[in-house]
Design a protein around this nucleic acid. Structure first.
Length: 430
RNA sequence: GGGCGCGUGCCGGAGUGGACAAACGGGGCAGACUGUAAAUCUGCUGAUUAACUUCUACGGGGGUUCGAAUCCCUCCGCGCCCA
């Protein structure tokens, strides 16, 4: 009797997509599922009951950040993450392996783990497979991720060039700027002279597999908590195959694809996922870590992925960037200064509906784009909250529709309702 | 009536002979964001040009100088002080 049960209700006729449900000791969630991110035991700006209200059934926490503050022992003594943050549904914790990537400038990786310079007090913090398990066992999530080595993406500059040639709608004026951010993540490894990306991927793969074995061995609560293994391998399909074979060979309740969406163009992400997902056991949930935009989600679902998480709805929500079925809306733009309409007509989120529908029915007046823009211009915290709610609801509604569609098989219909996701269908129909 | 000081771009405010279309900050405009050190970050912000450029600019006018936001004269406005 495992702490996790996965049932598949139906599989799509024309793709590898499947609809199902994952059961944990803190309840179940429907798959494919989108999990909001609450890194430090908080989905920023959104109270747990609101997170539930917009349709989320499971959310993320982060091992590394909670270990530094407030410390896993405090959370354990207070009853674990569920009680601590007042979320009684399933919780998944990321292991901190991603922070070795995202905080690359503050750490060093070796064969036994990662040494971080604490972002809280500057002290040296060591995180490896055993420690990551110890912390997650103390935090008490339903699903815990293995500690992996997430290598930097191959060549951010070249990758972006490709993306641009394909004539995406993105504004090109920003390329050099976020280059700075990407190279920051790459600096630690790729910045070294004589850097050999293939070799780095191989090392990451070997570590990830070895660390996974150690994680499994160190996992002290297998009857309460489920450990997921992670496949690395960058954009190299052979490396993905190599890693997937070894990771899948280790008996676990679920498996994840990591090291994706770290700067690659959309098609590359889809390609890696389409290649890797089928290599993971069909009777276990497959989790694509950190993804993503609607088109990425659609392509991955059709490749057989069941779980997703992403900071986009909340991070972009805090930055006045609203997701809609037809694309992103930058609510700070001057053209919305007098726009009386909701973020997205027809949306049933608390922002577009003007509230949570208290007694007496829904308010007649919505939170207008003009009002939300004003909130952002004025620095009012309600702005980020409203748009976060809208975005979270957007992704939940999208996933709900995707689940429906897996039953009906009407993918063109889905893409008609969600034009933003269209590239995801195009890429998986051959 | 006399004396002193001040007047810079949307705003505040540097600059006191050339590297000034003018620091810095604010405001505004635009962009980015994929297992969150992010309510953050980046760029632009006199006009004109695709760009090199050119033009108009530091209260008004006049002057000195190869060259002035910066020096001189004068006028206007504002502030403070003395009668």
């Amino acid at each position: 009797m495992s702490a996790l049960k996965f049932e598949v209700f139906c599989t799509d006729q024309g793709s590898a997509a499947r609809r199902g449900r994952v059961h944990t000791l803190h309840g179940a969630f429907d798959t494919p599922a989108f999990m909001p991110v609450g890194t430090r035991a908080s989905v920023k700006g959104v109270m747990p009951h609101m997170v539930r209200h917009i349709g989320a059934q499971i959310l993320l926490n982060n091992t590394f950040h909670l270990m530094l503050r407030p410390g896993e022992e405090i959370i354990r003594r207070l009853g674990g993450v569920h009680t601590f943050m007042n979320w009684q549904g399933p919780i998944l914790t990321d292991s901190g392996g991603y922070q070795a990537y995202s905080l690359a400038e503050q750490n060093a990786v070796d064969d036994d783990g990662v040494t971080f310079k604490s972002i809280v007090d500057g002290s040296l913090v060591r995180l490896g497979p055993e420690r990551a398990m110890q912390v997650q066992n103390a935090l008490g999530p339903d699903i815990m991720m293995a500690f992996d080595d997430c290598p930097p993406s191959a060549a951010p500059r070249a990758a972006r060039g490709e993306a641009r040639e394909r004539g995406g709608e993105q504004d090109e004026s920003s390329e050099e700027r976020d280059d700075a951010r990407l190279t920051a993540a790459v600096r630690r490894d790729a910045g070294k002279k004589g850097y050999d990306h293939a070799a780095r991927l191989r090392i990451a793969n070997e570590r990830t597999v070895r660390w996974l074995e150690r994680c499994k061995a160190a996992h002290a609560r297998p009857h309460d908590q489920s450990l997921f293994g992670i496949v690395q391998g960058g954009t190299d399909l052979e490396m993905r195959s190599w890693c997937a074979a070894r990771v899948a060979n280790i008996e676990l309740p679920g498996y994840a694809i990591g090291g994706v969406a770290v700067g690659e163009p959309f098609e590359q992400i889809a390609k890696v996922v389409r290649h890797t997902a089928p290599l993971l056991p069909a009777d276990k949930p497959r989790y694509l870590m950190g993804v993503g935009y609607e088109r990425d989600l659609l392509a991955a679902v059709r490749s057989g992925v069941d779980m997703f998480d992403c900071v986009l709805p909340t991070r972009n929500g805090r930055n006045a960037n609203a997701f809609t079925r037809s694309g992103q809306v930058r609510l700070r733009n001057a053209k919305y200064a007098e726009d009386p309409g909701p973020i997205e007509p027809g949306c049933d989120c608390p922002a577009c509906l003007g509230g949570f529908g208290e007694a007496g029915g829904q308010p007649a007046v919505v939170f207008s784009r003009a009002y939300i823009r004003h909130l952002f211009m004025a620095g009012e915290m309600l702005g980020p909250i409203l748009v976060s709610l809208h975005n979270l609801r957007h992704f939940q509604r999208f996933m709900a529709d995707v689940r429906e569609t897996i039953g009906s098989g009407d993918w063109p219909g889905l893409v008609q309702r969600w034009p933003v996701a269209a590239p995801g269908l195009a890429v998986t129909v051959s």
